[in-house]
Amino acid sequence: MKATLQTLFALGRGDKAADRVVPPTGFTARLTLFAAAAMAFLAVFALALSLAAARLATSWGDELARASTVRISAPDGQMAEQTATALRLLQQTPGVASARALSEAEQQALLEPWFGPDLPVAQLPVPQLIEVLETPEGYDPDGLRLRLQAEVPGAVLDDHARWRKPLIAAASRLRLLGWASALMIAATVGAMVTLAANAALAANAQVIAVLRLVGATDAYIARAFVRRFTLRALSGAAAGTVLGIGAVLLMPPAGETASFLTGLGFRGWHWVVPLLVPPLAAAVAFVATAVAARRVLGGLS
């Protein structure tokens, strides 16, 4: 722990001499940079997906939960009476902000897309619709349903939960998948840096032997490797993040017909989230290299 802290401080301070003791390796350096950039690019998309799915679940949950409908199907003669009873009952129900029977014109407008503008609604046995708006606390749908059943036999309460729930569940699952992908990407960065660091430590066995011989501590040797890989992961991930954000910005803007895909992107403070990718990649690389170096060095004489 102490050694790790020292390494962390030294990393910030920088040590030209310590950097130079490990020979530069062009090819693996470029591979590490590329892999870090690719992973950061993917991470930005996974995060965009997660955040968009979360936003979608919230908006579906919030906006649709506020409104529900009571449908009254009754013989012609009882329609007005049952509607009045239902309205009275609804107004007495705690959690209901307002209840309003739709007018004939409104009902016709709702049916228009299906039946055309000339439908004579009044002559058809169309059920009467009552629009119910909830207070933020909401009402108890089961209790309301029971009371409606008792007093208004032809009334059916539709609180939208039936079809809202699977959508919200799907959006939540999508969000979970996005976060899981981000975690997997982080783990992959760790695995990749561990492999690269192990290869570098093995390739530099002679350097390590010489350094040990002239009195270098493990912390000093580890620092040279840890610093190098942390900086590579940081710069690679920074490049990948910039590219990823650029690609997200190029997505078509979400218009009036905001569908799920066009809504893929960052809104408001969510823009901070992709900026965390490079430092997180650097942190993962730091820990991975420190662990690899400690294991390799600890096994030497």
Partner: peptide
């Protein structure tokens, strides 16, 4: 291991096949 490293600073070692950092 750190104590050993410190003691190496008080013991100079010359090997038959002396190794160096070849890039320095």
């Amino acid at each position: 291991r750190d104590d050993i490293a410190m003691s190496r600073r008080r013991i100079g070692v010359v090997h038959q096949d002396c190794q160096f950092l070849d890039h320095l």
